[in-house]
């Protein structure tokens, strides 16, 4: 069997969508938790970050249970015409829950480093909070954003357990490059398996290289 580019494309699309979703969802959350240090923050933060410490299969199992028609979220999704298990959309949602916290942590660390008086100085130069966020906070968090984007993308790309639990291995839909690699190993097609692995190693190396460069710069 030859090298199939479709799983690579599925993985790439998945990684890209999860990263964009995580960036959009985690940016306001991270900023909010940096600005408002309420007693609920730790509880909320622990809840958000817990997927990072769970085995992917455990997380996948409970996400699947949530989506089953026996429970409310599944029922509600069904009523709206959504069925998430074993679909690409389901993978995107599950991977955002599982790997979005990488984005959150990276952004939060970056936001927290910004001196509070820079924010105040901008307000006192007549700029509103939204303009200040885009003109001061975001540019100063550039490294944190890039690092969050890379870690979220790489973790999504390399995910195996969760993707298998949630999506199975439907060609051109949920069969990612990690799953394709696993299947080739099972079939003892080592030559193709090596190629899939080489692609993953190459992308990971590039990502880690950029991350270490960013760390050195900061």
């Amino acid at each position: 069997m030859k090298f199939d580019f479709v799983p690579l494309w599925v993985s790439f699309r998945l990684g890209l969508l999860v990263t964009i979703l995580a960036l959009l969802a985690m940016t306001p959350l991270a900023w909010y938790t940096v600005r408002k240090d309420t007693p609920l923050r730790r509880f909320f933060e622990s809840l958000l970050v817990i997927p990072l410490s769970l085995p992917p299969t455990v997380l996948g199992f409970y996400i699947l249970l949530c989506w089953s028609p026996r429970f409310f979220p599944g029922k509600a999704l069904g009523a709206m015409g959504f069925s998430l298990p074993f679909t690409f959309l389901g993978l995107v949602v599950a991977c955002t829950i599982a790997h979005g916290p990488h984005m959150y942590q990276s952004l939060r660390t970056s936001f927290a480093r910004i001196e509070g008086d820079l924010w105040n100085a901008s307000l006192l130069l007549g700029k509103g909070p939204v303009e200040t966020f885009f003109r001061i906070v975001l540019p100063l968090s550039r490294r944190g954003i890039i690092s969050g984007v890379l870690t979220t993308f790489l973790h999504t790309l390399g995910d195996f357990g969760l993707v298998l639990m949630i999506g199975g291995s439907i060609p051109a839909e949920t069969r990612t490059i990690s799953i394709a690699l696993y299947e080739q190993v099972e079939k003892m097609n080592y030559a193709v398996a090596h190629r899939y692995a080489a692609v993953l190693i190459g992308i990971s190396f590039l990502g880690v290289y950029v991350l270490s460069k960013l760390q050195k710069e900061s």
Partner: peptide, 20 residues
């Protein structure tokens, strides 16, 4: 009245210049 509507200029102890 929020700070950005007060027309007050405050020069901070440590300047708070935008580093970028």
């Amino acid at each position: 009245v929020v700070p950005n509507k007060r027309k007050v200029g405050l020069m901070f102890q440590h300047h708070a210049l935008f580093p970028h």
